[in-house]
């Protein structure tokens, strides 16, 4: 009897997880695409040194981070998939969303300080499944950070006018 109740709860969680997870994912992707378009003028590179044009200009450390988790349904699939191996599609999407979100948040911070470019961008992924591991909650923290540089005022004006 207990087993049946447990199974029913699992099934409900999977259905709810699948529906909410799919809706959430496509909404998040739409949001990401819109913000990426809006922030496309802040350029990002992971080369260390900015070009000479930024010589002597303002710079600062900027970062963005997000903790992502996977919905229940996709976690179950990933669990099953781990038995046979192969691509864990559910985690691919979660990490892709999280990483793009982190980069966007870093860009937003750069925008706030009026920077035009972020150099030496570093991406970090860490497992922060905070509840004890056996509960199976997979939480990943995605961090993006780099050094944002401002343009000289006269350069900014020339780009705007171009």
């Amino acid at each position: 009897m207990d087993a049946i109740i447990l199974l029913a709860i699992t099934a409900v969680l999977m259905v709810v997880g699948y529906l909410c997870g799919s809706i959430g994912q496509s909404m998040h992707y739409r949001d990401i695409r819109m913000r990426e378009f809006a922030l496309r003028d802040i350029l990002v590179f992971n080369e260390k040194a900015p070009p000479a044009r930024f010589s002597g200009q303002e710079f600062a450390l900027v970062s963005g981070s997000v903790v992502m988790s996977c919905d229940y349904f996709r976690q179950v699939i990933a669990g099953l998939k781990q038995i046979v191996g192969g691509r864990l599609v559910s985690y691919e999407a979660m990490l892709d969303r999280g990483r793009r979100e982190a980069i966007l948040r870093m860009k937003e911070e750069a925008r706030k300080m009026g920077a035009a470019v972020v150099f030496n961008v570093r991406l970090e992924t860490s497992n922060v499944s905070m509840s004890s591991g056996n509960k199976g909650m997979t939480c990943m923290e995605l961090v993006a950070y780099g050094t944002a540089w401002k343009l000289a005022p006269q350069d900014e004006a020339s780009i705007k006018n171009a």
Partner: peptide, 8 residues
């Protein structure tokens, strides 16, 4: 147009 430098 929206770039700070030709090469970037």
């Amino acid at each position: 147009n929206d770039s700070f430098d030709r090469g970037y």
